[in-house]
Amino acid sequence: MPLRIYGHLVAAKTRADFQYRTSFFLYLASQTLISFADMVVVLILFTQVSSIASWSRSQVLFLYALSGIGFGLADLFISQVGLVSRHIKAGTFDQFLLRPLGALWQLSALEFAPRRAGRAVQPVIVLAVILPALDVQWTPVKVALVPITVVCGAVIFGAVWVTASSLAFYLVNSQELANSFTYGGSFLTQYPIDILGPWLRRFFTFAVPLAFVCYFPAAYIVDQPLPESIPSWFSFAAPVIALASVVVARALWRLGIRHYRSTGS
């Protein structure tokens, strides 16, 4: 979808949402509060211990910030696809197939909720505060890796969201199932994935590649060892993984649409 059309649609949705001003700001506040609460959890845990899986407080907060920004971006721009299940149930998904734009982009634009911007606010502040506080010998590679990680993280989260939402074309009540990978993923990626048992760790590395969202790259930046059996170049593989996730997500979404068009449900 051309960016200009997307912009127009998003602006209109923002105008519409703004009509319920009180609720809009309360919602925005609650979104900000959710990611704030995630940070408070990290801070509280570190009042009891000085490290988690050998990661220090600032290092975990660094993970929190990278994961939170990536997730916040995906939440703002892509999470709307999750509504596909509600549209299918209500019979309103047809409308998306009647317009000369891809259904995915229409959902993203037409269901755009500016209040979700609140999600990324807290992580951005934390990143700004924590970067100078990290005990890191900054090299050009490490500096470049920070923005790359944020972007790739957002893309991977977005791809997970699209993939999980594609389930809606086959299962009536799939939204919650999708949530365990998206919101669950947001929760998980705030911590060193090393803490998981071995098979769950493998699952989040190779099947649903959330470990690439921030854990692998951040481990390189803060000089934490990767778990055994994970090659060190995984720290730089996020762009490739992001691209592959997009290819898979796109294919599954299209498959879902094709299934919908042949079954009508």
Binding site: I5, L9, A12, K13, D94, L98, R99, P100
Partner: peptide, 28 residues
Amino acid sequence: GVVFGQRSQLWWDLPLRDSFSLLRHVYR
């Protein structure tokens, strides 16, 4: 052009005019 009598393609919270102008962008 398609109209489903029981469904709406208008933006619920926007004036008709705005819905029309959005559709103008959608259909270029």
